[in-house]
C-alpha cells in the first residue's frame, strides 16, 4: 500500500520554542492514524503544517504525493479538515454550509447537490438539512463539519481533537461515523486526541510529547511492549512494602494514589505468590491489562490524564459560552 502522508524530520519553531522537534512518520492509505499527546505536545502544530495553514521551519511533508509547502493548493484539494473549534457559519442552514463548501472546491452544481444528500444521510442529519446551524447541538455541529470535510471527496480527512467537549455518548457516535466513512469512502484519517480511550480506535498511534514522537505502533502492540499486567497493591495499614517488593522480586514500584503500582509478566500466577509470601501485610491486590495510559506513563514519566484542561479549552466548551 502507498503512503498517503509522508512526514520527514519536521521541525517548527515559535521564536525560541521548538514546538515540533524532528517528527517523521508515514500514514498508509485507508488507515486511521492518531496523534496522542497532552495539550501543547505539538499535535495541533503538526496538523496545521500538514493542512498548509502553517509553514514548517524545517523538514518535509507530503500529502498524496504533493509537498505541503510547494504545492499547497494541490494538497488542499486532497484533504478535508475538521477543526478543533467550530468553523461553521451558524447563521446559515446545514445545506447552505455544505453548498458553499462545494462551490469553493469547484464542484459542479449537480455534484454538490448529490453530495449534500449523501453526506447528510451519512451523518444522520438529512432531516436537519434546512435548519439553521445555530440551533444545532455540539454533536450535530461536529457531524456536520465531518460531512462538510468530505464534500469534495478528499483522500485524507484531518480531525483535530474531534470529540473534545462532547459527552461520552456523542463521542461514541462520532467514532461510529468515522469507522463507517472509512468503510464507505475508503478514506485515510489523521487525527489528534488527548483521550486515551479514543486512541484505541486508531489503527496506529504516535505518542507525542514535547514535539517528539516517543513511540509509534498499533495500540495493541504498544500495550504488549510494556509487558505483562499491571498490579496495584494496597498495603495493610502502616506497612511500607515498596522496598520489600523491589528486594524480593526485583520490581520497579511506583507509588500512585491508588496504591503501589508495578508490572509483572504473568499477573494471574504472581498474585497467589504475593499473597502467600506477604500475606497479612497486604490489604488488597488489583490486576488489570495495561492501558495506553500506562504506555504513556512509562514513556514520559507522566500520566496524560493528569493534564488539566487549559483555560482556553474550558472557556471554549463552557456550556454558558455566549455567541456574538
Amino acid at each position: 500500500m502507498a503512503s498517503v502522508i509522508e512526514v520527514e524530520n519536521l521541525v517548527k519553531d515559535y521564536g525560541k520554542v521548538r514546538a515540533v522537534d524532528g517528527v517523521s512518520f508515514q500514514v498508509e492509505e485507508g488507515e486511521i492514524f492518531g496523534f496522542l499527546g497532552p495539550n501543547g505536545a505539538g499535535k495541533s502544530t503538526t496538523i496545521k503544517i500538514l493542512c498548509t495553514l502553517l509553514k514548517p521551519t524545517g523538514g518535509k511533508a507530503r500529502i498524496a504525493g504533493h509537498d505541503v509547502e510547494k504545492e499547497p493548493d494541490r494538497v488542499r484539494r486532497q484533504i478535508g479538515i475538521v477543526f478543533q473549534d467550530n468553523s461553521l457559519d451558524d447563521r446559515l442552514t446545514a445545506a447552505e454550509n455544505l453548498y458553499l463548501h462545494g462551490l469553493l472546491y469547484g464542484l459542479p452544481r449537480k455534484v454538490i447537490n448529490r453530495r449534500i444528500e449523501e453526506m447528510l444521510e451519512m451523518v444522520d442529519l438529512a432531516a436537519w438539512k434546512k435548519e439553521v446551524v445555530r440551533n444545532f447541538s455540539g454533536g450535530m455541529r461536529r457531524r456536520l463539519e465531518i460531512a462538510r470535510g468530505l464534500m469534495h471527496s478528499p483522500q485524507v480527512l484531518f480531525l483535530d481533537e474531534p470529540t473534545v467537549g462532547l459527552d461520552p455518548q456523542t463521542r461514541a457516535a462520532i467514532w461510529d461515523y468515522i469507522h463507517r466513512l472509512r468503510r464507505e469512502e475508503k478514506i485515510t484519517v489523521f487525527m489528534t486526541t488527548h483521550y486515551m480511550e479514543e486512541a484505541e480506535n486508531c489503527d496506529r498511534i504516535a505518542i507525542i510529547d514535547f514535539g517528539r514522537i516517543k513511540a509509534l505502533d498499533t495500540p495493541e502492540r504498544l500495550k504488549q511492549q510494556l509487558g505483562g499486567d499491571v498490579i496495584t497493591l494496597v498495603p495493610a495499614d502502616g506497612a511500607d512494602l515498596g522496598p520489600v517488593l523491589t528486594e524480593l522480586y526485583g520490581l520497579e514500584v511506583k507509588p500512585t494514589g491508588e496504591g503501589l503500582c508495578f508490572r509483572v509478566k504473568d499477573g494471574a500466577s504472581f498474585i497467589p505468590r504475593l499473597a502467600a509470601e506477604l500475606g497479612e501485610r497486604i490489604k488488597s491486590i488489583h490486576l488489570r491489562r495495561p492501558t495506553l495510559d500506562d504506555v504513556f506513563l512509562s514513556l514520559t514519566g507522566r500520566a496524560i490524564r493528569e493534564e488539566k484542561a487549559s483555560a482556553a479549552e474550558r472557556l471554549r466548551y463552557s456550556p454558558h459560552r455566549h455567541r456574538h
Binding site: 498548509t52 495553514l53 473549534d85 467550530n86 469553493l104 462538510r148
Partner: peptide, 17 residues
C-alpha cells in the same frame, strides 16, 4: 475578525482558492 475567531474563515482559508 469574528469569522477568524468563531469559525467560517478557517474553513475558507484552507480551501484551494
Amino acid at each position: 475578525i469574528w469569522d477568524r475567531e468563531f469559525g467560517f474563515l478557517k474553513e475558507v482559508l484552507v480551501a484551494p482558492v
